[in-house]
């Protein structure tokens, strides 16, 4: 009995010591060349969200080019505020990569988090997802010009939905209205819960116009239920050459959701470059090309950090101006 007790307590201490040992080892200090330990990819969504799919995919594919393993971590909450705080609390050493979307720019511009765009360093833009406007195929508007003319004739009548009340969709609607010389009081903007919600409402004739991205509209368009009145891409989309752009219809609105990687500002330039090269190589991997294609996303590469970083900061500034109104 006594011996048994001793064996068990011995086992306990060993187990405890083992746990701590592994923990210490995982966090022991070593100043080898970057990256000498797994790199974390932090996403703001939970399992199953679009951004977590990208995060997981990158964590699976990129280690091949980084020479070090990567893990995808969820830090959900506050539209990414929790994830931002998680990274900003840590040192700027490139071991915590923020895989995120336009939402970050919006959150920063709203000024609700104790960080600014200067606390971030853009690494690479991986995807762009142009904003688009769709109506039911049986509605009278054939293109965006028709729609604008109709709104002008019937102010305050059009039921136009977008995701959420504050975000990229209302921003897009505001830009479009501004480009047509209209005002937000000329329509009824209906904040929806997301793309599926808008699709259902549009199919059920509860709304007239929806703000949707190519991925969200292409199936309904192919089935002949919806018509795309315009996209916020600079030129016509390769996969959908029949969709007009806003630009060609005379409305200078280019707006898209992007997804890409950011790190904490102050990360050494060599580390940023290493990360950029890794993701850039991954971007050209056939598996990633297929991943983008399946998700109906467009490759959003715009050059190194020297291109993406200023783009990101400028976007935050633009959004700030929009929210200040």
């Amino acid at each position: 009995m006594e011996r048994q007790r001793k064996t068990i307590s011995c086992f306990m201490w060993l187990a405890m010591a083992g746990m701590i040992f592994l923990g210490v080892q995982a966090s022991s200090v070593a100043l080898a060349e970057y990256p000498d330990r797994p790199v974390e990819i932090i996403v703001k969504g939970g399992p199953g969200s679009g951004i977590s799919q990208l995060g997981h995919f990158a964590a699976k594919l990129a280690p091949k080019y980084l020479g070090q393993s990567m893990v995808c971590l969820y830090k959900k909450g506050g539209s990414g505020a929790v994830a931002q705080a998680y990274i900003q609390k840590r040192s700027a050493d490139g071991y915590h990569v923020f895989m995120d979307t336009t939402t970050t720019a919006i959150v920063l511009a709203r000024g609700k988090v104790p960080f600014t765009e200067k606390d971030w360093q853009g690494v690479i833009r991986l995807q762009v997802d142009p904003q688009g406007v769709a109506v039911r195929a049986d509605s009278p508007w054939k293109n965006f010009k028709d729609l604008a003319a109709w709104i002008r004739k019937n102010p305050g009548k059009l039921r136009w939905a977008g995701s959420h009340a504050v975000g990229i969709d209302p921003y897009t609607v505001a830009l479009l209205l501004k480009a047509t010389g209209l005002d937000s009081t000329d329509i009824k903007y209906v904040p929806a819960e997301g793309a599926s919600h808008m699709t259902t409402m549009l199919l059920g004739k509860h709304i007239d116009v929806a703000t949707l991205n190519p991925r969200e509209v292409k199936e309904q368009e192919a089935a002949g239920n919806f018509r795309v009145l315009g996209t916020g891409h600079p030129e016509r989309l390769k996969d959908h050459p029949n969709w007009p752009t806003f630009k060609e219809q005379g409305f200078d609105v280019v707006v898209a959701i992007w997804r890409g990687a950011l790190v904490k500002a102050g990360t050494p330039a060599a580390v940023v470059k290493k990360l950029h090269d890794t993701f850039n190589a991954m971007r050209q991997d056939p598996a990633f090309v297929q991943f983008l294609k399946n998700a109906s996303q467009i490759d959003g590469y715009m050059g190194g950090p020297d291109k993406f970083d200023p783009f990101f900061k400028e976007q935050v500034q633009k959004m700030k101006a929009y929210f200040a109104k």
Binding site: L22, G23, V24, A26, S27, S28, V29, V71
Partner: peptide, 15 residues
């Protein structure tokens, strides 16, 4: 699933 497994990461200077 990923859980924090590091022991005293802040104290040991690895965060």
């Amino acid at each position: 699933l990923k859980f924090p497994t590091e022991f005293l990461p802040t104290l040991l200077g690895r965060d």
